[in-house]
């Protein structure tokens, strides 16, 4: 368990490593990994019952990054947590890499699912949670969804099935950052319309019989409390969705709330600015 101050420092370092890696590989996503950073750090350092040295441990909690294009955020956090050396981040998106553009469970032990086609991760999680119940396993399955992603109909098939089978051992985290790759014209919480500014996903989950918790997705105490509560209530047989209010591109003055930073490669100057804004010291110069 990490203290909040340590978690804050990890999140700053994580943000910098996301930008650095994307700059280095010349491809990748920025906005989503930054909006999810606190949740990923909280999960991997304080919530998930995992063994990085034994990534396939049978009784580990499962985590599925359904918004698979935020892969670099997940890799950075896994590296910080000790699943593989930080240096391996330099292989992201390169040939023969374990760090594919979208998470590939067949390449990197520790990834509990392959994702990338949006809307599929929750179904995979439903299968794992169902299997856990059949096998009498008590681990918990967490699935992170994007607010753009839940436009996919398959998500709601999974939501319906999770209620039907009373999957209290399944928790979704909704990274509600209010922006998708392009989206609709107009002003929302960022520089385009929030995909859910005219319908409330909280009410939809609720109507499907899920327990809905609402948090600030950048506040470690709220993330950890909501996840702990969801796990503790597993036996009640009600799946939980943690609706996390987040800011896309959070943490950097030039990326926050900008849809254009969904997937954009930072320049050398932007990376340097990020280093200053995040207060990162001692990072080696880039090749």
């Amino acid at each position: 368990m990490k203290a909040y101050a340590d978690l804050e420092a990890l999140a700053r370092k994580g943000r910098y490593l996301v930008l650095k890696t994307v700059h280095h590989s010349g491809a990748g996503h920025i906005g989503g990994p930054l909006s999810a950073m606190e949740m990923l750090i909280a999960l991997y350092f304080n919530v998930l019952n995992i063994r990085p040295e034994d990534p396939l441990w049978e009784d580990r909690d499962r985590f599925i990054l359904s918004k698979g294009h935020s892969a670099i955020g997940l890799y950075v956090v896994m590296a910080l947590r000790g699943y593989f050396p930080l240096e391996e981040l330099a292989t992201f998106d390169k040939g023969n890499s374990r760090l594919q553009g979208h998470p590939d469970m067949t390449r990197l032990p520790g990834l509990d699912a392959s994702t990338g086609s949006l809307g599929q991760g929750l179904s995979f999680g439903v299968g794992i949670a169902l299997g856990a119940k059949l096998k009498g396993k008590t681990f918990h399955t967490f699935v992170m969804l994007g607010d753009g992603e839940i436009q996919e109909g398959m998500v709601w098939e999974a939501v319906n099935t999770a209620r039907k089978y009373r999957l209290g051992n399944l928790t979704a985290l909704l990274d509600w950052n209010g922006l998708q790759q392009y989206g609709w014209r107009g002003q929302g919480r960022g520089d385009r319309r929030d995909p859910w500014d005219d319908a409330d996903p909280r009410q939809i989950f609720q109507a499907f019989g899920w327990r809905v918790r609402e948090i600030d997705g950048h506040a470690f105490d709220q993330i950890i409390a909501a996840c702990t509560e969801a796990r503790a209530a597993a036996a009640e047989g009600v799946p939980t969705v943690i609706v996390a209010h987040t800011i896309k591109g959070k943490g950097l003055s030039f990326t926050e709330g900008k849809h254009a930073w969904h997937s954009k490669v930072p320049t050398r100057e932007e990376l340097e600015q990020a280093r200053k804004e995040l207060g990162i010291e001692g990072e080696e110069a880039l090749a």
């Binding site: 179904s123 995979f124 439903v126 299968g127 299997g131 059949l134 096998k135 319906n160 099935t161």
Partner: peptide
Amino acid sequence: PERFLEMGIAEQNLMGAAAGLSTLGLIP
């Protein structure tokens, strides 16, 4: 009956859930 899972009229979820379930050593 305990090993029969009715997944309803939702084939995409059926397929995805089967894949997830198989990771636990079950054979769907």
